[in-house]
């Protein structure tokens, strides 16, 4: 259990964490503005994708870094969010306030059912149980013939907010996603410094000691699991809008694996690192993939080199501090 999170824990200060977070968000907004001014709508949609992936990665990073829970099924809540958006939009309910809360609540409720079962275990068994549940949802989504089955289906229309078409263009979608990412990043950072976050963090260090202090360990872990699922579902709603398409591929275990890779690449527990790693992986695919179909070879070599040579991670490389709050 402990070795799941061996990343160095530096004594943090909430203020500095917030500053780093603001810097990353500011950089994304600046990139978006530059892309707009330079008239590169293509980059705009790329930035939107980075922001959306970051939200998903952030929720998983919180789960892994703060609670020490490695979910190999994080694609499931993302997919659930996407399908909520698809189904609501088909029924004419496009308002984001409804879509986002419905996605958050549904994914959270499902996590509330699967969580206690998975949380009876730790380590690899927990990883495999989360995978098992995600696989079940993958097959359920594939069998929804009236929603496109395995092929998926185009979104009827993009979401709105209080009657305004605030996701009409890719730039608007990207701006909204970054704004939402900012809110979630700040909320997560704040949560890491609350009593809830501190107890979670303490549990990754020594679960027994925390339990001996009278804390219901599994309750805390379950809350973290449920919140992370809800946030992931939020990114699913945005993902559906970004691609204008929803398919079971969103729930594939490859996606869960990619998210873990992004989180670890960014540095476990380094929330802004998750954003940097999302950007790295997406840009890698985008630009190397433009030149060769063997871009995964390059990504693989980069990943192995990062792991072997430095034994550190991207977050550390860019000077992002670990947010694990331990006095």
């Amino acid at each position: 259990m402990n070795d799941m999170n061996r990343a160095a824990v530096v004594n943090p200060a909430l203020k500095q964490d917030l500053l780093t977070g603001f810097a990353v968000i500011g950089a994304l907004f600046a990139a978006l503005a530059t892309a707009q001014i330079a008239g590169a709508p293509y980059l705009t949609s790329l930035i939107g994708r980075i922001a959306i992936t970051s939200i998903a990665a952030l929720s998983l990073s919180f789960l892994i870094g703060q609670a020490g829970l490695v979910s190999f099924g994080h694609a499931a809540p993302i997919g659930i969010g996407a399908y909520v958006a698809l189904m609501l939009a088909a029924g004419g309910t496009t308002d984001l306030s409804i879509q986002l809360s419905a996605a958050f609540i549904l994914a959270a409720l499902i996590a509330l059912i699967t969580g206690p079962i998975a949380l009876k275990t730790r380590g690899v068994t927990f990883i495999m149980l989360t995978l098992a549940f995600a696989q079940m949802f993958f097959y359920v989504a594939s069998s929804l013939v009236s929603w496109g089955g395995d092929d998926g289906m185009a979104l009827a229309q993009r979401s709105t907010l209080f009657g305004y078409q605030i996701l009409r263009t890719d730039a608007m979608l990207a701006a909204f996603s970054i704004a939402l990412l900012a809110v979630i990043l700040l909320a997560n950072t704040w949560m890491a410094h609350t009593r809830f976050g501190l107890v979670l963090k303490a549990m990754t260090e020594n679960e027994r000691r925390v339990a001996a202090n009278g804390f219901e360990v599994n309750h805390f872990l379950l809350y973290a699991f449920v919140i992370a699922a809800g946030v992931a579902a939020v990114s699913g709603v945005l993902l559906a809008n970004q691609a204008n398409y929803v398919s079971p591929a969103y729930l594939n275990w490859h996606r869960s694996g990619e998210l873990i890779v992004i989180v670890v690449l960014g540095g476990v527990g380094r929330l802004p690192g998750a954003v940097l790693a999302s950007a790295l992986v997406i840009l890698f695919e985008e630009f190397l993939g433009h030149y060769t179909e063997y871009w995964k070879l390059g990504l693989g070599l980069t990943i192995v080199a990062i792991v072997l040579l430095r034994g550190r991670d991207l977050g550390a490389f860019f000077g992002v501090r670990n947010q694990g709050a331990r006095p």
């Binding site: 590169a40 790329l46 395995d150 092929d151 890719d170 691609a243 398919s247 591929a249 695919e285």
Partner: peptide, 29 residues
């Protein structure tokens, strides 16, 4: 073979590369 990846890349073709024709595509989804 991922619809969302395809959409992003095709947007790139349309907006960055400003292609005159989009051609190919193996799979229906």
């Amino acid at each position: 073979l991922k619809p969302d990846v395809a959409v992003t890349k095709v947007k790139g073709l349309l907006e960055r590369d400003k292609v005159n024709v989009v051609a190919g595509v193996v799979f229906s989804n």
